[in-house]
Computed example of a mutant assay.
Amino acid sequence: MPETKFEPWNDPNEKPLIEFRGVTKRFGTFTAIDNQSFDIYTKEFFALLGPSGCGKTTMMRMLAGFEAPTEGKILLGGKDIAPIPPNKREVNMMFQSYALFPHLSVWDNIAFGLKRDGKDKKAIAARVAEMLKLTRLEKFANRKPHQISGGQRQRVALARSLAKAPKLLLLDEPLGALDAKLRQDTQFELMDIQETTGTTFVIVTHDQEEAMTVASRVAVMDDGRVVQVDTPDRIYEDPNSTYVADFIGDVTILSGSVTPKDKGYELRFAEGQPTLYADSDLSLTDGQTGYLAIRPEKVAVSPEKPEDRRNALKGKILDIAYLGNLSTYHVELPTGQVVKAQTANTRRLANRPFSWEDEVWLSWSDSAAVLLER
């Protein structure tokens, strides 16, 4: 039997675990969250993504109970959580600093919340053993936090947060302190643990790659608002604005006036430059300003003009960023605008076909670029 895809947000019979209903949060005259409504479903790994100061941590602090909404409601399992104190919510938070007790062993750190809840010794021992196994820390149970690595401390904090089997686990920039390689490994560990426990995870991060790797859905935030909530592939391939397109991954954005044509629009972006074309189901008027967002990996670089593509621009190579498996070419158009194109390095560097200052043609298919209204 084929495995059904996990998409509760597309199922009208599914009830969300968390509902933000017209939530506004003000600090004095400053509006941190501006009238926001969205849902998070059980077993989701949901990411709040955005630059510093966009309101994502405020969202999380309201979920945890450290802040109350100024207006609107947050429902957990259909109940308004505002009157429930933080320690009585079925919500746990894992802090960026991990906040482990330095004088307690790994075992005692994980057991701390269970002991405080007055669980009996046998139940505590069984649960701690389960958590140690889940986070692969069995060998380190008797060590103190300073005797283990940063990645292991991160896993202790995770085990402690999950020990009380919360319905919801909030993770505030949980991988910020780890180096690049460890971050990557830990992202996959987090996903495995989330899947194994079935706990709903909400992660706050400013790292787009992290959000795209771990999340079932990503909420991109800007200035107190959720701009787009969607699956990582949709956010990347089908952004709803230039802000989202620009925030996630590399992109070139060309703007100009549009004219309806075929299944989409032609775009005139500069005097003396060829018109470009994009398939699109947007409803734009003739002469309206449109924005064409094109990802570097969708742009081909060739020495001659390709005959079979109507999107073709001539330019000069300004820069080449060599990333091992990929090379990104920064190509300057006669207008001074720079378009990025990416190619896979299937050959040795010595055989690279293009060099700095070379004149090249950039081209892409009718459906490769996304036309945006704003």
Rank of each mutant, 00 (worst) to 15 (best):
D281K: 13
L17V: 09
W356R: 14
N35Q: 12
K181P: 01
V339M: 03
L313W: 06
D11T: 09
L158R: 01
P86K: 06
I110A: 00
P232I: 08
N35D: 15
V128L: 00
D262F: 12
T285L: 11
E71Q: 14
N325W: 09
E195T: 13
E210D: 04
T196I: 15
Y322K: 11
M94Q: 07
E195H: 14
F112S: 06
L313Y: 01
G264N: 05
L17F: 13
A32G: 02
G287D: 04
R153M: 08
R21V: 14
D230C: 11
D207E: 13
A215V: 04
T335N: 09
R183E: 07
P239I: 11
S97N: 15
A125S: 12
L318D: 14
S327A: 15
A245F: 06
V331S: 05
V301P: 01
A82P: 00
R26M: 12
S257G: 09
D319V: 11
Q228H: 02
N345H: 00
N109S: 05
T135P: 05
F46H: 02
D117V: 10
F101C: 00
R143Y: 10
I193D: 01
P86T: 02
K122R: 15
I253S: 05
G198E: 11
C54H: 03
E173K: 03
F140D: 12
S105P: 05
L318T: 14
L349Q: 10
V338T: 11
E359Y: 00
H330W: 07
K144S: 08
Q147N: 08
L48V: 00
E7R: 15
D246E: 14
V204T: 00
Q187C: 05
D185R: 13
G287L: 13
N311V: 04
S355E: 13
E67R: 09
P174N: 02
L158I: 02
A159M: 02
L190F: 06
I40L: 08
L284H: 10
N10G: 09
R352M: 08
S37E: 10
D80Y: 03
R347G: 14
V244P: 01
H146Y: 06
S283Y: 04
K167G: 07
G176A: 12
E7G: 02
M221F: 09
N92K: 04
G264Y: 11
L49P: 02
D179G: 12
V244M: 04
D222L: 02
T197M: 08
T196F: 11
G176P: 07
L75T: 05
A82V: 09
P174D: 07
L282Q: 10
K298M: 12
P296I: 09
A68M: 11
N351D: 15
T199Q: 10
A82D: 10
Q337A: 14
R26Q: 15
R61C: 03
L63S: 07
G22I: 04
G50H: 09
L362Y: 00
R348P: 12
A219Y: 08
K298T: 06
L169S: 06
D358I: 10
F112W: 07
Q184N: 10
F101A: 09
F354R: 09
E271R: 13
T252G: 02
A321V: 10
K15M: 14
D34K: 14
F140M: 14
G315Q: 01
K73H: 13
R374N: 13
M191K: 15
G55Q: 03
T196K: 15
D80W: 00
R160C: 02
